[in-house]
Design a protein around this nucleic acid. Sequence first.
DNA 1: GACCTGCTGCGGAGTG
Length: 736
Amino acid sequence: MTNSPVSSSEGNSFDLLDPRIQHWIWASGWTELREAQDRAIPLILDGSEDLIIAASTASGKTEAAFLPILTRMVAPSPHPLLAIYISPLKALINDQWRRLEELTEKLEIVVTPWHGDIGQQRKERFLKSPQGCLLITPESLEALLCRRGHGLAGLLSRLAYVVVDELHAFIGTERGKQLQSLLHRIEKALGRPVMRIGLSATLGDMEGAAAFLRPDSSRNVSMIDSKGGGNELKVLVKGYLESTSSGANDPESAGVAKAAIASDLFRVLRGSSNLVFPNARSEVEYYADSLRDSCEQMGLPNEFWPHHGNLSKEVREGTEEALKQIDRPATAICTSTLELGIDIGPVKSVVQIGPPPSVASLRQRLGRSGRRKGEPMILRAYCIEEESDDPGISELLRENLLTTTAMVRLLAEGWYEPIRARKMHASTLVQQLLSTISQYGGAHAQRLWDLLCVSGPFRAVTSAQFASLLRELAKREIVFQDHTGLLFLAPAGERMTEHYTFYAAFATEEEYSIVSGNQTLGSMPITRPLSPDSYLIFAGRRWQVVSISSNEKVVEVKPAAGGTVPKFNGTMGADTHDRVREEMRKILRSSLAVPFLDAKGQELLAGARGNYCRMGLDHKWILQSGGEVQIMLWCGDVIKDTLALMLQQRGNRLAYEGGLSIPVKGATAESVREHLKELADGPAISPLELASSVQNKIGEKWDGLLPVELLDASFASAKLDVGGVQSVLRTRFNEE
DNA sequence: GACCTGCTGCGGAGTG
């Protein structure tokens, strides 16, 4: 292939591919293999190590994995091979299915998509001839193991590769723990390791990702980190001041800043395609409605479309289609639904309203713009600060503007939050235990312990905790042990594993469907049912409620002129990282101008710096104000929350609602100082003891089935950092 | 004090 039209920067990866695949590459008009593809091909063909491919969106990661996998599949062999591709989204499976079909058309390789929306016929065809590429979700794979476990070794006997897409979306979550367990159970059933390939755009640290992909380190994980040429970054952060003093209860005056932001967005975004991230579904509804209304007022076709997780598939696909149309401008107002790799067209700029949840998330969002060579990435951020008669510390230090400024600076430095995967997820152990018993139709306690906790991913669980979990499940008649020592599912356990809701590792609430005529607009939580005739803004439009059916959980609506933005049930917020809070303090201590702030932003920052000096915050971190004491730790939320619990456990009364400080009520600075000194220098309190003092620890799906001590341990692993508290307190005392 | 994701087997009606 000396005159091959496709060049390869290093080595001869192209030459290693099957000629038919080489022809496909040529016919697709590619002039060269991307760096990640070039490097991945020999490693995947060799197959003796695991692999992580981290490369930017639209850099051909999927092809990097599948070009060599398909080459292996079409090579002459007595046994046809099988590859499993695991995706966190059904939409992504459908995308990849289309792309792979195009590639495999002439190769006679069967590609089988498998998730909840795929018909039974296709699934049965795969079960009869389990080869080719299986594209599946973790939940469907769980169901496969749980229900067809007997034949698993036969079914997957040809398995040669496991590809995990969007790896970062799994790390540190219940779904990620479930996925690790599934991969381990498959290898144990086969009695051999299978090459694992992780694909990701954003990875804070590659070592952490490797430890996630192969937790027992029994195989080496190679890494391809192809960051790609960074496009120029253009940033503008705008500040807004909202007065909430005196007339604060007047609903008309609340939202002046939001209206100003909406009108600025209309002015700068019209005529191009953009993504707007306002941080909350209710805010998405506000801006989508307001911007669509502005288009209508001016007699223009609508360019603004909503996208969030409570909107129906049809509404979301409508927005995605509008974005893909290159010849017509379209801007999506969205939540993190548009952060993952669903295929949307190129966008000119990304708008962030309010502080981003994390630097990593900001980076992922920004990666959606400036995708073409030479085009800059454009970020416009809007920050609303409040001004009241009785300002708190967060208000005086302009926390929203300051957080956004700190995150933009860290982003520009190239820093983002490393992966945190120290959580035990004992809730998911309950699922894996029951699923494994179902898979084998009964199992010895010792075997389950070995499989899940000794060689498997629940390494943080002790044998005593595991034994107490089995006793708890037996007490609840979910499992029982026969005279030979085998564990079986009891009737309650069988009902659990047979119900379709068992296969997802994460919990969700029940919701009402919102229906207009024969169109389903989406769904809403049922904790706040609407009264008939009330008005509602949903899917970026205005509606009136016609009827509510509690039995069928359906709200019927019709178009209307009025409406208010709905409330959704938010869960706990994101944990801001230590480094972000340190950067915020650094900005307050400096007097240098921040060039990407607008005039109002500069003015607000100058005020915050003045307040920081006036309060003496450079050396003082325990402040007395009236009967309240404020503790300023300048650390991330996990440590701050842990200290709040420690103080509460020692009898302090807190008025803690997040923010920059921990307020202690009815105390003196001296007494609080004494407590903090003892905590800093005294023996470290055990995280389990601290956890046992916490009232509501139920957070994950099966937490309610855990014995007390295991629940405490699982809570502590996810939420507490006692060592971190001591270390931060010592730093603060030393600085005085 | 954000956001997001996913799900089997069967029975019955309707159609070719």
